[in-house]
Nucleic acid binder design. Structure first.
Lengths: 190, 190, 190, 190
DNA sequence: CATGAATGAGCATTCATTCAT
DNA sequence: AATGAATGAATGCTCATTCAT
């Protein structure tokens, strides 16, 4: 009995998810160019050929992993808010950022890896900007409403701080005092 | 009649410097594994083989570039100070950090690239820690003397901030408002 | 629709045999290190890469050729006989040795080549000893039963003679009087 | 004060000898193609370039080592004897053969290595035959005078035996019972 | 949808050899 | 006579990608 169109779609969806997950883990652990497609196939228990059924090439694979990841974590924020964020919302935003970081360490490793690699970065740049710009605007509005001078510089500084803290936590998750640091950040920007 | 040992040393020194410089530029631009040794040789106007006269392999090359870079910029600070840093010195330190960043963009690109690559990171880790730990201690002492609570967290936060700011500046040197941000940092930590 | 496991196994088996055969011929003719993998691939009409699908590296290839060869020719003898060999059996053994030598000249060339190369020898040493020791024991028993004094020395001498004769025949198969020499050996040791 | 022609010749002679000796040791230990010229230079404490002052290339070097070795050990025998060898002389010859083998293990390792490598063998073949043929003739005469039938086959057999015994001793000098075996050979051919 | 055999371009690395000094 | 910097051809090996089944 042939499978229905629906069933096929399910299988495809599951396989695609499996491949992305497996690849994410390996990319984060070994790096992009040190992870052969064959290693992904092996760890996922599928054939190399199957990966090429779903992704046109290795770059497409990492590109789609990145885009999905960006979508996922950006959906947590409500980037369409145009009015200024409240204090409570700001605090919630900082909390969420750290929570997401802790729970998706692999993705964030990959994120920073990719940021440093011009070739892959190009694949993601547009999408990233699409989210980042309204996000910086929202922060800027918040700082303006709180009476900070040069609010856009504050917004970019906070963005940079979150990058720097994430980076340090990723490189050394054991001894980096992330919770203490979260408090300091909230103190300084609330 | 062979050249004197002195002459040979000169030649070696010049070639080694040329190779390191060229490699640094290419690594920073294309990434480590996307830069073939042949590309370095070509750009430096020498043969592939010559690179292997001076460096045992590609990893040795990047390792030595990193170590030299770390030595160079660390020599700017006086990491042996044990008494607390003065306000003026602290300000000078922040200034210097930004100055060095601006003047060695390629090296810092490579630095962040390497931080994300476990294999290469291992080659440099020890040397880095040798400098970073006394450095964090000095910062911590400064914060303690200024009456900040949890001074070590403050030190690590400042370290992370400098990482994050550098990273943002490296990725987008044109529009990142680095001078405004320097002022904000000094305000917040003085 | 993928091929059945059976079909894949067939393909693999055939290709592995083809590669081994081709490599044996070239190794015997040119020597191990003077035979590039590319030459084997070319002569076998396949790509370099395919060889690495079946053998982890060049040493693995020669190692497996040697092991297979040793297994093959040792299966001719019955190394598990524990009682003394009869005269007829001894004669048959000498005959067989010369027959095998004549029919597998390439393999024996390679065998002596390998004996002289410490690196490759190590790959095969254990397997070889596994066969050679019982074999020398059997010969020793034979000489003892025939009343020869110092039977183990006789066994090792005979082993050495077979090596020496093989070597001379390999180097100069045209003019070396191998059949006459076989008779002399049988006369001297019967 | 410039050196006299004589002194230069001395230096040349000493350096040539040093290079040959050093190369022989390394070739025997590692094999011909696994021994870089640079390794010879390093071990001899001279420069690579100097080796090329005395030998046109690597093959020339091994060729000259082989030729010198052959000359040296052949001078022990008196290959110009045309009358049949006496029993005493035969015994002395066997003794000498084993003595020389024991004292020049490195050379003999190289000798067998070279015999298996067609390219290098060609360089030596003629010289070798120049010695070997009269040598086999002398042996043949000896066997004829002692009433052995098919004396040339006996001569070639003895040659092969000496090869085989040497080979076994070279591969495993510790446990091969070379002295017992010498006695057996003398018994069988006297 | 799924497989894995097959390809070949690409790359790190080695090393014999040359040559200016 | 002696040095060692420099070259570049050669080679082992990897891996993204294709494709017949």
């Amino acid at each position: 009995m042939p499978r229905t169109e629906e069933q096929y779609k399910d299988i495809r969806g599951q396989k695609i998810a499996l491949i992305k997950e497996t690849a994410l883990g390996l990319f984060a652990e070994k790096g992009f160019s040190s992870t052969p497609i064959s290693a992904i196939a092996k760890k996922a228990g599928i054939s190399k050929g199957l990966i090429y059924n779903y992704f046109t090439n290795k770059e497409d694979l990492i590109g789609k992993i990145m885009l999905e990841g960006i979508d996922e974590f950006m959906s947590v924020y409500d980037p369409k808010t145009e009015e200024a964020i409240s204090e409570a919302k700001f605090k919630y935003f900082i909390d969420q950022t750290f929570e997401i970081l802790k729970q998706n360490l692999d993705f964030w490793k990959l994120y920073f890896l990719v940021m440093m690699q011009p070739e892959v970065m190009k694949l993601v740049e547009n999408k990233l900007m699409e989210y980042l710009l309204p996000f910086l605007d929202a922060l800027s509005n918040y700082f303006e409403s709180r009476g900070f001078e040069n609010p856009m510089a504050h917004a970019r500084l906070l963005g940079a701080i979150l990058d720097g803290v994430s980076l340090n936590y990723i490189v050394d998750p054991v001894s980096f005092p992330i919770d203490d640091i979260k408090k300091l950040i909230i103190d300084k920007f609330l």
